[in-house]
Simulated assay, not measured.
Amino acid sequence: MNLARQEAFCAALHGAGSLAGTPEPRLDIHRNNRMASLAAALAIGFPATLSIVGEEYFHAMAREFIQASPPREPVLLAYGDGLPDFIAAFPPAADIPYLADVARIEAAVTRAYHAQDLLPLGADELQWLNGEGALDVRLRLHAAVFVLRSPFPAATLWEHNLAADWVPVEDWRAEDVVVCRPQMDVLVRVLPPGAADFLQALMDGHSLGDAAARVESDDFDLPAALAFAFAQGLARPGVDTGPGAGEADVFGGAI
């Protein structure tokens, strides 16, 4: 099959016209198989989202997403990154306002799982915390760190909808969430007050002192936030000190 024929076939699969020499019923079979395969891949990547809305709703929503955003690459590892934003703008999901944030956590879980392997900072490498100028240090974060600020209990909803025995969420307060993979397993953790602002500032290249100063929460505890970061393996070896140090070595992202 030459390139022009391949492009015409792809366009026909997307529903853009027909393909000369190919009966429409046969094209429909290919279209249905393609749609079913992509919807199944999305279901694997977004199990809690599926659990919240049910299989029929999820697959109908997935079909709309696939039509609007077909895969652009042959590898489907990152396919679905756009699903949370699609859900946020999807009119039928307007009465499930937390659904997009749960999907954002699941997209981050996939990205964290496939992120670069990096060892977290060990306890023997934390001596600089007691040294002069510690607040001028720019801490490098692990490549698999992603931060989400949600007005909903997004992490709790994610966890409950993956549990074998589902229980309703009773405490509907906002949650700041970090997704990370310090070793082999991906972790989803609710952050203490102010830690999301702090981590985001570190990702933006600010020193520990400047990052702490950017936190808006009155309940922020810098030692506690650092202890949390090290306990969860959010930091990686190789801290930098001095003006401009480490600006190109800050990892992680917002979701």
Rank of each mutant, 00 (worst) to 15 (best):
residue 82 G to H: 06
residue 72 R to M: 06
residue 69 S to V: 01
residue 61 M to H: 05
residue 85 D to W: 04
residue 74 P to E: 05
residue 76 L to M: 06
residue 71 P to Q: 13
residue 78 A to V: 09
residue 62 A to M: 01
residue 66 I to T: 06
residue 49 T to P: 00
residue 60 A to H: 12
residue 57 Y to H: 10
residue 70 P to I: 10
residue 84 P to Y: 03
residue 54 G to K: 07
residue 54 G to V: 13
residue 49 T to A: 06
residue 84 P to K: 03
residue 61 M to K: 06
residue 55 E to F: 10
residue 76 L to K: 04
residue 86 F to M: 06
residue 56 E to A: 15
residue 56 E to N: 12
residue 76 L to A: 04
residue 58 F to Q: 01
residue 51 S to P: 00
residue 50 L to A: 03
residue 53 V to W: 08
residue 84 P to Q: 03
residue 86 F to K: 02
residue 75 V to C: 10
residue 51 S to N: 10
residue 58 F to S: 05
residue 79 Y to E: 00
residue 81 D to E: 15
residue 55 E to A: 15
residue 60 A to W: 03
residue 86 F to C: 07
residue 53 V to K: 06
residue 71 P to D: 12
residue 71 P to S: 11
residue 58 F to W: 13
residue 59 H to C: 08
residue 63 R to Y: 08
residue 78 A to K: 05
residue 52 I to E: 07
residue 53 V to C: 12
residue 66 I to E: 01
residue 59 H to N: 12
residue 70 P to D: 01
residue 79 Y to D: 05
residue 70 P to F: 04
residue 61 M to V: 11
residue 73 E to S: 13
residue 83 L to H: 01
residue 79 Y to L: 07
residue 64 E to K: 14
residue 63 R to H: 12
residue 49 T to Y: 00
residue 62 A to Q: 05
residue 57 Y to L: 12
residue 77 L to W: 01
residue 84 P to A: 03
residue 85 D to V: 03
residue 53 V to D: 11
residue 50 L to G: 02
residue 70 P to T: 13
residue 77 L to V: 06
residue 85 D to G: 07
residue 83 L to N: 09
residue 74 P to T: 04
residue 86 F to W: 08
residue 71 P to L: 09
residue 57 Y to S: 02
residue 78 A to I: 07
residue 83 L to K: 00
residue 81 D to W: 01
residue 76 L to T: 04
residue 68 A to W: 06
residue 78 A to L: 12
residue 64 E to M: 12
residue 75 V to W: 09
residue 51 S to K: 05
residue 65 F to P: 05
residue 54 G to F: 14
residue 62 A to D: 09
residue 80 G to Q: 03
residue 79 Y to W: 11
residue 54 G to L: 04
residue 58 F to T: 01
residue 51 S to D: 10
residue 61 M to E: 08
residue 66 I to N: 03
residue 77 L to G: 00
residue 58 F to G: 08
residue 59 H to K: 12
residue 66 I to V: 14
residue 85 D to P: 00
residue 64 E to Y: 07
residue 63 R to V: 01
residue 75 V to M: 12
residue 81 D to T: 12
residue 76 L to V: 01
residue 81 D to F: 08
residue 78 A to Q: 11
residue 52 I to T: 02
residue 71 P to A: 13
residue 75 V to L: 15
residue 64 E to I: 00
residue 78 A to Y: 09
residue 52 I to F: 02
residue 50 L to I: 07
residue 64 E to C: 15
residue 60 A to G: 12
residue 86 F to L: 07
residue 83 L to G: 04
residue 85 D to N: 11
residue 52 I to Y: 00
residue 53 V to L: 12
residue 85 D to E: 15
residue 78 A to F: 02
residue 50 L to Q: 12
residue 54 G to M: 09
residue 68 A to P: 01
